[in-house]
Amino acid sequence: MADAKRPNQLLRNLNAKVAAIPMVATALVVFVGCTIWTIVHSFTKSKLLPKTDFVGLDQYERLWKTNKWLISIENLAIYGICSLVLSICIGFFLATLLDQKIRFENTIRTIILYPFALSFVVTGLTWQWILNPDFGVQKIVRSLGWESFAFDPLYNQDIVIYGILIAAIWQGSGLIMVIMLAGLRGIDQEIWKAARVDGIPKWKTYIFIVIPMMRPVFVTALVLITAGIVKVYDLVVAQTNGGPGIASEVPAKYVIESMFKNQNLGQAFAASTMMLVTVLIILVPYAYLEYGGKRRAK
């Protein structure tokens, strides 16, 4: 690495290079090194300890035959699609509401955003309590006279993932709203004037003019939500711990349990590599858009 002929080149800026050592180490050792390590070891038959007996794609084959993993993936798909659509719609809708030059804008924004300050554990436990069938929403509706009313998402295998979804939307939609609101505020007021002169109704202006103009904001929101979706773990642990049965398992939880509970490292590595692949599927087009777009624009 050291260039003997031009020591100046290496010594110049030496302080900056020394100062950047933690960053370089994090980037290379943790983000690149550890990721590659995990991917490589996902092709081995590691059990309790990481080994290097390569077994090809065996771990992946086994993974995709494991019921718990399939349920995890299904849950992640349902949860992911719903929370993506709902977060974006609710976030945008709330942002447009706040953009109507209303009074108390700060107060309302503060109220909508405060759940975002809370941890997933707190969110999960709170909603576990609200959705408790013996004390929460179900009991209240029943006590109002609708005796057969049933709403116990956390104890019903078929809808448990939606119970988690409610909590997740409550926690995360404020963030999307803030991003969308910033996007709306970035729209040139002239556009609005022009639309009004042309007699275009407000809702049409939003859908056909403002939303297309806000594409980068939507892409950012999309990436943020997706990255959050794949990582979902603490919320499930706190709210249902994967139950009832294994009905609300998610991939992140599958990985951690294979790793630290079931001593099945190979499975954990294979599953986490699959998670990485999922993120890459989203991230690569985004990076392409981002950097391709920049090259075109500037």
């Binding site: 110049r12 800026n13 302080n15 900056a16 290079k17 100062a19 950047a20 960053m23 370089v24 994090t26 980037a27 290379l28 943790v30 983000f31 690149v32 090194g33 550890c34 990721t35 390590w37 995990t38 991917i39 990481p50 990436v223 990255a227 794949v230 990582k231 991939p251 992140a252 990985v255 951690i256 790793m259 490292l265 954990a268 590595f269 599953a271 986490s272 590599t273 998670m275 990485l276 993120v279 991230l283 990076a287």
Partner: peptide
């Protein structure tokens, strides 16, 4: 104080933020 390669490390760092933690936990 940009130096040769500093932007590369920075880009890796930013992309690293999107890697699911589960991938890096065990190493």
């Amino acid at each position: 104080w940009k130096f040769k390669g500093s932007e590369v490390f920075f880009t890796i760092l930013i992309f690293g933020a999107f890697i699911p933690y589960q991938v890096m936990l065990y190493p």
